[in-house]
Design a protein around this nucleic acid. Structure first.
Lengths: 162, 162
DNA sequence: TAAATATAGTTTCAATAGAAACTACTCTTG
DNA sequence: CAAGAGTAGTTTCTATTGAAACTATATTTA
């Protein structure tokens, strides 16, 4: 490491204009979004880790298959916002737990139809109320109007981003 | 894979109650949050990748050091919402680019004081207006009131989550 | 003040994630 | 209908990440 007296830091660097002086990370929208996202996803993760030591992608796949049963991996990709590699691994690890069953897909020999087993449904049925509780816990600090507005705006931003 | 006729899927599994039937992932707040976060962070990543092929942690560290110069790694951890391992690597890789300089910390020999170099300031000065543009692009679809409300509620949720 | 304890930061190690390559099958077209 | 092109899903390979171990220094305490 260089010694204090050898280095002047940027204090002596010529002024780069106002832009750099006023950039406050805590006011930067994507930063706020990240902090918000982390806080929400940690609350959810606590549940599926505590209950079953699941991975995020396991929970996401189960959350979809628990309700919309009999999906192909491609349909799961579409619904889950996960890529096909992640979905493939999610199906593999949930199957290893005995929570999913696959049958052949008569429409396409490269594909298959994935469903939850009784065990998988049991885990899903256990998790869903706990997840609803987490969701309520997060939104508890908002009144109904605030919650609705927030969801509406979040969706609006996503739609406009592409 | 098991054959169709050997497997019944969950359709024959006893009813687990309403909870599982009405759980719709796309209406689940943490899921919406995740989709929202991904869309925002991709827009930001596009800039720092296109400009300098930076890693997320490099951008986050530079975003803070560009303005609040002369920080210890610990201060950077505090401000960045990154853990100390990630911060350590961020400092290492930005230093390798020649964008940061370190001097010894007279207050604590285990620590150091990190500052941006002229090169680092230049990159920061180039990135900041582009990041502001991304931020505006994201918020463009909202009126001022919506944007303010959204930020306020996002902060409120974070504060109440701990 | 020497020993024990605690802390700042780094490195190592193991787990996760995504890109690209691959396999097996389907679809198109000459 | 055979060859070539395209697609679904998996596997392999590489890079990123975080936890735990480690190093060096600071602080506490006997």
């Amino acid at each position: 490491m260089e010694n204090s007296k050898d280095i002047k830091g940027c204090l002596d660097v010529p002024d780069q204009g106002d832009a750099t002086k006023t950039f406050e990370i805590s006011a930067f929208f994507p930063y706020q979004t990240r902090v918000f996202y982390k806080s929400v996803s940690e609350a959810v993760a606590k549940v599926y880790i505590d209950e079953y030591d699941m991975k995020p992608y396991e929970w996401r796949a189960l959350a979809i298959l628990g309700k919309s049963n009999m999906l192909t991996p491609a349909q799961l990709v579409e619904e889950s916002s996960m890529d096909k590699v992640t979905v493939s691994r999610a199906i593999a690890s949930l199957s290893k737990r005995g929570w999913l069953r696959s049958r052949s897909n008569k429409m396409d020999g490269r594909s298959r139809i994935v469903s939850t087993s009784a065990e998988g449904q049991k885990a899903f049925a256990n998790l869903v109320p706990k997840m609803r509780a987490v969701e309520h816990g997060i939104l508890r600090c908002l009144d109904d109007h605030e919650a609705a507005e927030f969801k509406r705006i979040m969706q609006k931003i996503v739609d406009h981003q592409g």
